[in-house]
């Protein structure tokens, strides 16, 4: 459905993209993650046709973006991070306007608006002006406005930032439905749990290039990232640290009063580690098992937290 080949983009003397390539199949839920300034927004802006790449090619729904931008625009829907609605118009008027831009026939559009408002739980507020809505309700309408022309591809740029749990859950339900219905979705977020929950595949972008991509399981195995045991001691001094270093085998490191021990067989190694610590007179105050997740993968690959 989407094929991006080696796109580059520079602003004056700042290089935003150094050669981004990825491919997304129809119906796939693709997460694009990266620290701030990594090139996510530039990539989405190029894919959503408002920015031209310096080089490279993009094909959306079989259409070359540089040659058929209008056709590509008809195939995509874009949910921006900012709530882009007209506050003085009602929800219904907003949806009618945004839908009309895609030449959806009037009768069909009105029916779709009704359905979409029902889907987002706002049918009873449709005549109220947007300025009277809560942040979460506005965000729901913001998403709804991108769906009225039934796009084949939906770009969503952090659609759940700063909203209430009720709206978040409603949006999640809609996302699951859209995914089930076969819509191709490209999703950027800073919430690890959202990416883990929805994304079939994830691309991690940093410094203008995709540094890793694949399923969550594939990413977890990328770079040999292991689960770890974090043991906190009450009496860790230089002498004890030296004894532990001599006694322990494998990959580990100390940080203040904490020993972090990496392991591929966490259950077996845990009991051995406790036993050895006791033998050396180390007093343990806490033990924590740190599993591999997207956050740790992201940290390992980019050196930054997802929310940096």
């Amino acid at each position: 459905m989407i094929k991006v080949e080696n796109i580059t983009k520079s602003y004056a003397d700042v290089v935003a993209l150094t050669g981004v390539s990825f491919e997304i199949k129809q119906g796939e839920f693709y997460g694009l993650l990266g620290p701030n300034g990594a090139g996510k927004t530039t990539t989405i802006s190029i894919l959503s046709t408002i920015l031209k790449p310096d080089s490279g090619s993009v094909i959306i729904d079989g259409f070359e973006l540089s040659k058929n931008p209008e056709q590509c625009k008809r195939s995509i829907g874009v949910v921006t991070q900012e709530i882009a609605l007209y506050n003085k118009l009602s929800a219904y008027e907003n949806l009618l306007f945004w839908g009309s831009l895609y030449n959806v026939p009037d009768a069909g559009l009105k029916k779709r608006i009704e359905e979409t408002l029902q889907l987002f739980g706002l049918a009873d507020r449709q005549k109220d002006k947007i300025e009277t809505y809560s942040g979460g309700m506005k965000r729901r309408i913001n998403i709804a406005s991108a769906l009225l022309h039934r796009p084949k591809v939906l770009f969503m740029d952090e659609p759940t930032v700063g909203i209430d749990p009720q709206s978040r859950n409603l949006i999640f339900e809609v996302l699951e439905k859209l995914h089930t219905d076969g819509m191709t979705i490209i999703y950027t977020t800073h919430y690890m749990e959202e990416a883990e929950r929805f994304c079939d595949r994830i691309g991690i972008i940093d410094k203008g290039t995709i540094i890793a991509q694949g399923t969550l399981a594939e990413l977890k195995s990328t770079g040999g990232i292991k689960e770890s045991i974090a043991v906190t001691f009450t009496n860790l001094n230089e002498d004890l640290q030296l004894k532990l270093k001599e006694a322990l085998l494998g990959d580990f490191h100390f940080s203040k009063q904490i020993l972090t021990y990496y392991s591929a067989q966490i259950r077996t190694d845990l009991s051995k580690l406790i036993l050895r610590c006791n033998e050396l007179g180390a007093e343990i105050s806490n033990i924590e098992i740190q599993k591999v997740n997207l956050e740790t993968v992201f940290l390992a690959l980019t050196g930054k937290q997802l929310r940096d």
Binding site: T49, K73, I76, V78, T80, L101, Y102, N103, S145
Partner: peptide, 8 residues
């Protein structure tokens, strides 16, 4: 920006 996403 949102208007520019539309086929206009």
């Amino acid at each position: 920006k949102k208007l520019l996403f539309a086929p206009l």
